[in-house]
Design a protein around this nucleic acid. Structure first.
Lengths: 141, 141
DNA sequence: TACATATAATAAGTATACATACTTTAAATA
DNA sequence: TATTTAAAGTATGTATACTTATTATATGTA
């Protein structure tokens, strides 16, 4: 019954995805959640953006990102500064440690993506991901 | 970059899934989260199970289910009683109100499943869900 | 039967996730 | 320029989600 429902299957996939992420990352010696990694990776390629831009880019709301950045700042991976041009905004940048961590984590994160869908072969996985992107075409725009 | 990653796409799908669920259910006049509905639906077809069995059936850990049942009990949809045969266990049953709510919510929940994947046509959606089940074959068994 | 082990549930702690309200600051406009 | 409106971030509250520890109760075994 539930097993037939898209919502249930998607939730189970998400659950598997985060479990694989956590266990593979821990195995590789990293203490990062999926959101924390996503934030660091976006800051690596977009240094100096503010929290609102970051949350738009990875599709989290502002309140959630505020907490994520709190924890990354506390770990010494991100620095937060009041914007000169807009004193409401907080400008974000990786610290040196933050840069080292994302750069070394990136290959591990790339690897673990196929592990999430390890029951699909290469062609099936590509097809599945193409369907996923199509399902999200509005959101990903 | 992130958009290429399975984990990111799956998270976005999950996000869309819960958003569609919340908005469609609210539109239909129901105040139920996806987990709460899943719990009620399993209790409808498996009355009298305990919390551990329920959490195994919908793949949540016991701690999470404890809180979910708290809220359903508070809404008057579920009753919790100490098991006669095992006094550690809590036997769960729908109340009359709980039964009415699941039964009337079920068609709405069925409908909204296709809305979650509305950018896929029927054949694509079937194929996508088949891949999802295959990806989860170990977990679902 | 006594003891070790295992299980059901709860408690406590961390981290998403989102809605709503509030404060501060910018931008638009009358 | 004064006022309205909007945007950035924080605070608060609710609901997952999971980990580890604790308590109560069963069960397996010496």
């Amino acid at each position: 019954m539930l097993e037939q429902m898209a919502g249930h299957l998607i939730r189970r996939l998400h659950q598997r995805s985060t479990q694989v992420f956590q266990s593979e990352m821990q195995k590789a010696g990293f203490d990062l959640t999926p959101v924390q990694f996503a934030a660091l990776e976006v800051l690596r390629t977009n240094p100096g953006i503010d929290q609102a831009s970051l949350s738009a880019m990875i599709a989290y709301d502002r309140a959630t990102i505020g907490g994520v950045i709190d924890r990354l700042e506390h770990k010494g991976l991100v620095e937060r500064a009041v914007s000169e041009s807009d004193r409401r905004a907080r400008i974000l940048n990786l610290t040196e440690s933050g840069r080292r961590v994302v750069e070394s984590a990136l290959p591990v994160v790339r690897m673990l993506q196929t592990e999430i869908l390890s029951n699909l072969d290469d062609a099936e996985r590509k097809q599945f991901l193409a369907f996923a992107r199509q399902a999200l075409s509005q959101e990903l725009e």
